[in-house]
Every structure is written in C-alpha cells, then in structure tokens.
Design a protein around this nucleic acid. Sequence first.
DNA 1: GAGTTTGAAACT
DNA 2: CAGTTTCAAACTC
Length: 813
Amino acid sequence: MDVVSPELNSLLPDEIMDTEAIEEIPQSQPDGTTAKPESSGDTSVPMETDTPAASENLSLSSDPSSTDHTQALTTSISTDSTFSISSGSQLAVSISSTSSPLLTLKPVMATSTATTKTTDSVTGTSVTTSGLQKLTAPFTISAANHQIILNKVASAQASEAAKAAGTQPQIIKQEGQKLLVTAIGKSGQPIVLQLPHTGSKPGVSQAAGDAKSAAPQFKVVTIGGRSELKPVVGGGGNQVTTLQAQQLKTVQIAKKTPTSSAAPIKFIITKTVNSKGLSPQTSVSPVIAGRVLTQTSAVMPTRTITLSESHNTSIQSIAGKKIAISPLKTPSKVTVVSVASPTSNASQKSVALPVNVALGQQILTVQQSTSASPVKVATSQTTAQSIKPVQSVAVGGVGSSQFKTIIPLATQPNVQQIQVPGSRFHYVRLVTATTASSTGQPSCPGPSTSSIQTAKPMVVGAGAVRMSVPIVPAQTIKQVAPKPLSSAAVVTTTQTQQRLIMPATPLPQIQPNFANLPPGTVLPLAPGGGNMGYAVVPAQYVTQIQQSPFVTLASSSGFAASTGVQTQAKLPLNGLSSAETTSRPRKPCNCTKSQCLKLYCDCFANGEFCNNCNCNNCFNNLEHETERLKAIKTCLDRNPEAFKPKIGKGKEGESDRRHSKGCNCKRSGCLKNYCECYEAKIMCSSICKCIGCKNFEESPERKTLMHLADAAEVRVQQQTAAKTKLSSQISDLLMRTTPVISSGGGRLPYTFVTKEVLEATCECLLEQAKKAEQTHQPQVEAERMILEEFGHCLMRIISSAGKAKADCASINC
DNA sequence: GAGTTTGAAACT
DNA sequence: CAGTTTCAAACTC
C-alpha cells in the first residue's frame, strides 16, 4: 500500500536525511554486525533502523503479520538526539488491543532475543517481542528498567505464532540510552521506550554546542510498522556493546530503488560511527514509499526522557483537509501528529493511540487510529476495534536542530514512518487512518468521561523530558469531545492541554522538496495517494499554536478559519495574557516592506509564522497562506537551501559547527552581530569571504570580546541570583513576622517597624554619615560606620519588639 | 527613540 | 557571476 506518492517519496529521503553524515555502508561490519537491506522485491516497509547502542530509538509500528519482522530498521546514530536517555533503564509499554485501553505501569525485565536482538551486555536488558505480547497490560512501564514497551497484542495466537516464528523484539535497547518504540498495530509488536537512568539529569535539552555534556545519545522514534517489514538490523548482540561510547557519529546512506508504481522501496543504510573508535554499526532499512526521514547528528548532549503518567487525554481530531503549520525555532522539539482520514469505513471502528512525548519543551504526540484494521482490539469501553495503520516515528536529534514535522493528512496506507532528522527541522511523519467517527473531536482533559478515563496518557516522568502515551479509542474520544472540530486535526499535548489543530486541506500546488520546505508548509495531496497529504510542521509551530487551547484552522473550503491561529495565539488564554502563556524563543520581527515574505524576515527565514511581531503588512501568516506559499516557492527556486539552517553541525561535533555559506563581512571585523558567524558564536571558516576578519581562534580581539561577554554574563547571573535570594529572604521575613502578635508565636511583630521607627533609623544613619564626612573618613570607613549604625538600630528595634511582645504576653493581649 | 551602520537578500 | 539595491537587524548617540 502506498502511503505517499512516488513523487513525494522520491523527495523525502534525500532531503530529509542528513547528507553530511552519509556514507555507504559495507554489508558486513567490523564488529560482525551485518546489515542487509531486504530484497528489493520486498515491499516491506522498514520503519527505522535502529542500530547502535548509544542510540535511542522509539519506534511504533503496527504490523499485522509481522511478528517475525524486525521493525526497527532504521539506523540512525546521533550523538545528539531529541530524546535523550540517560543510562540504561528501560520502560516497557505494551499496548494490548485485547485488553483495556488503560495504561498500566509494569516493570519489565524481558531479556531480549529479537532479531534486532541486541543484548546489552552492560545493561543486560533487552526486550523481547514475544514476551511482551503476552503482557496483558496494554501499556507497561517498567520503572526499574526505565524502559517502556508499547505492545499491542492482537491475540494469543499471534503471539504464539510470532514466537514460533522466532520473532524478535522489535526494540532493542542498549546501554539504556535508547528509546525504541516498535510498531503498534497488529501482531502484538511491542513498543519499547527506553528511558534514561534514574541518575540521569532531567530535562536535558542542551544546546548544540555542549560537547562536554554527558554521553551523547541517539534517539530514534519509529512509529509505524508493516507486516511486510523485515528486520534489517544487523546481527544480534554485538551492537549494544559498542554503543557504550558516548559519542557516536551516524552515517546514513539511502538508496533509492526504482520506484514502482505502487510502492517504491527505499533502502536507507545508516552507519554508526563511534567517534571514540568503537566499532561502527550498520543497519539497513528498506522503506516503502521511500519515505524515510533520518536525522543524524554528531556529538549530542544527553537528554533525558521522562515518562510520567498523566490523566490528561490528548486527542487528535482529524477532520479537515488542511493543516496549519507553524514553526518553532527552538531546537529539540518533536511533534508527531497523526491525521485521521475522513475516508473511513463506517462499519469499521477506529482506535486512536496518541503518544505524546515531551522532551523538556519537546512534545511528541502520536495518535494512531485506523479505519480498517486486521487486528481487533477489545476494550472494556469500546467494541472491537481494529488497528490498521502502522506508523513509525524516528527521532534523531541534534542539539541545536529543529524538528520538522511532516504530517500525512490522509490515511490510506497503513504504514507510516516518521523520522526526525538532525537538521534544523525535525521531520516527523505520521499517517493515521481514522474512521469518520473520530474526526474533529478534540478532547478536553477536563470533561473526562468514563471513556476518557480509560484513555490514559502515559507519562513517565524522570525529569524534564516527558513521554506520554495515551491510548484512546477514537470513539471514546468522540464521546468525550466537547466540541467537534471539523476539518481539523488536533494535536494535544497531554499535560499542558495544548492542542494543535491542523487543517488538512491541500494547498496550492507547490510541492517543493520536503527538506527545503520551510515549516508551516502544507503539501498538496499526493497524486494517487488518496487523501494523503503532508504537512511539514516545524516544532515551533506547535508551540505557537499551543498557546491557544483551542485553535481551529481553516476547513477544506478555505483559509478563513485559519487566521485564527495567529489571532488566537495573541489572545489571552485561560485568563493569561499571551505573554504569560507564550514562551517565545525568538525575537519579533520589525519588517515593514517585505511583508515578512522574504528572507529578510527572520520569522519567515526560520520557517515561522509571525507571531507577536511588530511587522507591518505582514503576510507571513495563515491568512495569507497562498502568498506565503508562493514566496516560499520563490525562495526555494532562488536557493533550494534557503530554509535550511545556515549553521551546519560539525562533522565531529558541535565544535565544528560552521556557517554553510560563510559570511561576507567587510567592516565589522566579524566581531559584531552583523556577522552571522559571530552571531552564531562560531568562528569564521575558510568559506567565509570576510575582510579583516577577527573572528578566528587566536584572535586577541575575539578573546577579549569573549571574556567581556563572559564576565558580563556572569555578572548578570550573579545579580539575578542576588535579587532572587534577597527577594526570597524578604518574603520569608515577612512571612515569619506577620502573624506573630495575634498568634502569640515566637516571632517578632513587624508592625514595630513603623513609619516613625523608619524615620528615626534613617536619621541615625544620616547622622552617622555626617559624622563620617566631618571626620573625613574614607568612603569605605563611612560605609562601615553607617552599616554599624544600621545594625544598632535593628538591634534596638528587635529589642523593643521583643520587650513589647513579652509585655503583651503577660497581659494576654 | 531616531539615526546610522552593516551585511544578507534581492535584484539587475 | 558580479555589481547594485533593498531590507531589517545591529548598533550608536
């Protein structure tokens, strides 16, 4: 089944993949690991390859038949990843179609044997599919292991069959730094999310430049699966051991097989290179429809993924054809949005499996619902439901990169892949097929009904990063949803109640390469792809939209409603002003003549919609979507790299970041923010054409500036800390002194500091100052005298207060 | 806050 | 591709 049109498919992989780290992979690896692409004839869709030890993968896939197929096929290794997992604990989350939708936390100590089969010699933890399938709990989290396994169990038979077939765990964890989510869908393939060790630091979304940070980690989230998929990951076991290295470099190679009319198959081979000399690992993942997004990054700071249980339900409603996209510039944000297809079989029932992963500010939301699915899910709340689609999400990350989200707008295909490449945007691909019943129904956590209660977003909290995996039947959602939203896809973050509603309407015929697409771009439906369309959604957009609890975008008919995104984003939300609810990572633009549709505009250049900007005649919004798309196309025509990050990640890590084009400074010496290199805090390189450059390593001017900047920063921090401390002390003092008199406690009444007392104190201090002046004391001595006098005054006040208190107590006042 | 400087983007 | 113009941010006063 084709999820994406060949055209789109042909575009995606190359664009998305990080070409910097691409390298052809030998079929046999030094460590003995062999990665082979499936035969070209095989239409199986490899979701993601998961490889190396240090990497963290999350793959979700539903594969009806393939219990025996490894679904984590994509191998990407990045030292920096969106998901960071600290060390080796794993959470196993299993979703069982047969069981109730409720998520349960359950420690899982399964030992792995899967095809992907990695055994972590160090952690010794691995997940086996077969074992997971037997889990009755739909969602299992093993706190002890820090591993989450999402496993959908179709039936005991399936499990058995899979077992007999020698099915492997679809996820393999290594070193506990890996997050893997296997295909959700059919034959009970588990989703494994590996969580960071408890010892890890929470909330670690560190800047790209943080090479010193703890172990770099690689995380891949794969959602999707297909029965045809076959395991690509190289031979078992050896991968894990090598992954111990903290810094890994990922090399990915994508091969395009000739696209067949039906489903082009693409092979992506990723090779992991251990910067520390560890044995590289290679994996090959065939991808159907050639849609593979991979992100590779060099050294990446460790990030922690926290999973916590939340009762908030995140629901995605899909009704529209149009998706509004808005960007977020801040790195490390992942948004996965699945859009249900309006074309649903009425008789069929849908199941929504939203998965939210929040990393600090990053949120990954995956909702999966299907119209026709081979697997039936029996839940207490809902009738038999079938889960059809397999979605894979791969998330890899670069510290400074952004996430771009690609959202399939319609659902024909069962299998979808989502990957987050390491470049500036994170690409997330989701395809969800839902029945009509599930469309347009955002759910509010508040009005939860029994059905909603059944759907529990699972959030395992271990720090700043949170991952929630709510599982809700689509019908349930519908029942709960207070307001139906038509023609809109809603992305909801579980805990924050933030929602992203994306219209799913196909846009004007601009179909640029995905890689070059600026955020907020809605791609037209793929020819022959049914309703399938893609929206490239930069993570920031989610943030922007999430500012509003309910943002409704235009329906398929037009953009009229879409304007609400910006408008509502500025409106007070929940009684809070936009400023209060908005965390704005970037500066507002001040464009006056460009209509914010040229690269002069930072917002536009970053693929963001203008929001809370000071621009005039702004067209960089949904209201002018057509113009915006034209402008984007124009820019891309002029420069296909226009929307790519200018600062590429270095091949060896953050320290090697450099400007993609180099600067052309002539007068600033490259030591002012006019210089893009200096502004990005990187050195000028050989590709710069600057004149009189002083922005190089040994430049004394640069060092001086850096020192000054550091000193200023330290000063600011100190001042801030001092203010905070003082404020805290004052409030603490007030708290302690306030109630005393009436309560008869042991504290002194602040009421003794009356106006008169203050005046008298000031008089004393002034007198002391005069005295010092008259005696020609140096300033330091004068200050000392004044302070001493102040101390005396305080002592007298305290003494008087204490005395008064004693008197008061004696008379029972 | 107004005016100037600067360099990227856009244009020719 | 080079030169010029436009533009908005950075900077100065």
